[in-house]
Design a protein around this nucleic acid. Sequence first.
DNA 1: ACAAAAGTGTTACGTGTACACCCATGA
DNA 2: TCATGGGTGTACACGTAACACTTTTGT
Lengths: 233, 233
Amino acid sequence: MIKQQIDYYASNDKMYVASDCIVFGFDQGELKLLIFKRRVEPDKGDWSLIGSFVELDEDDNTSAKRVLKQITGLDHVFLEQLKTYTRVDRDKGARCISIAQYALIRIDDYDKALVEKHGAYWCNLNEVPQLTLDHNQMVIDALEELRRKAKYQPIGFELLPEKFTIPQLQSLYEAIYQCEFDSGNFRKKVLSLKVLEKLEEKDKSNSRRGAFLYQFNADNYRKLVNSGYHFEI
Amino acid sequence: MIKQQIDYYASNDKMYVASDCIVFGFDQGELKLLIFKRRVEPDKGDWSLIGSFVELDEDDNTSAKRVLKQITGLDHVFLEQLKTYTRVDRDKGARCISIAQYALIRIDDYDKALVEKHGAYWCNLNEVPQLTLDHNQMVIDALEELRRKAKYQPIGFELLPEKFTIPQLQSLYEAIYQCEFDSGNFRKKVLSLKVLEKLEEKDKSNSRRGAFLYQFNADNYRKLVNSGYHFEI
DNA sequence: ACAAAAGTGTTACGTGTACACCCATGA
DNA sequence: TCATGGGTGTACACGTAACACTTTTGT
């Protein structure tokens, strides 16, 4: 029985499985993408997403988190599978499929020294250079997914510091959707969702008057979702 | 150079890559799922989604279409990547990841003889038996995706015959979302989208009066989308 | 006191929802 | 003629968008 089983599997071909990571950050009102210089052939020296081969004792998520930790020094980042790229000729080096994932990180938290040491670089999303293999397509797909998700799930908060102001949140959404929102309406909408906790502190970096800081209340969000609440921005 | 490249790839491990297919159909007002009896160890004889190993000269889509054609006799089905399942211990037989895809097919078109010959079976979506490996989870995820997509993209039509009535369309959506819609409002909504062409024929199978048949106009849909139109049911 | 950002209030409009109603037809 | 499903019309509630307006504070 076991013999037969092994034979059956063995009569098929294996492939390399890579995991590539589209890392988004938000800084100075701009969406950023983390890229670095490819260190292996083919196309050594080209810009590339960060990635790695998935090892036998890892799943895609574990693999991506390992690389992410290596390069940004960050643990506990938001990470989600995007799509698997399987074109036969996508990698000239070998038959290799890639499970792409996208990550959202609080850009002021990351270990700048580590990022630089690995030759990585935060590039502006409107100025993404030519990337290796099919990585540009991955970025396009990830951005589309981010836009789709941000509307129905509170993932935008993953890109902001713990405490943020309503105008900061608005500027993030304006960066994601590349358009302007009416500030009054945006504020009303976002507060009506009942997932923001107002703090006593103010942030005065952007105005004389200062804007109150808020915090995302994940517990409350979960409760609302469980009771059938439909989040939407 | 090439030597170094090959060495680099070779120092990593390969895996088996499978492609599993969640096949939805619609019949008698019910959503159906195509499953069949697994013919290989482990778990030979268990119910399973249809699937196969992805061959070296195939991408995931090609692979799924090959199996689908084999078992249903159908070409040109709607097929889209769902998600890739990579848990280390998901397959007891070997380290094997699976790229799941979901398909929507017009159930009255399929080759019934072929389906039966392969031991496949259309099961009711509310009565899915225990499936092998992580296939039950795949079905859950696929159903969620179908619900999400059907709201914003005209994929529902893939499950209906070429010509269908508005009440038929409504009954499909009721099956997908497991709730009832107001028929007047549903009709207004769906006709306001401007992608249905009214035919002269009537279908009298469900009422004495008969209901007019309609046809989905894909060209018109594409035009509307290109001009920024936002489809939503 | 004024510029500039934060924050509030008011109104008009379009869309979804509930529901009453008419139509066509075979038995 | 009546039961049944197909199809139309209307009235109201509500969320959104546009925009006028007030508040705060450093210079």
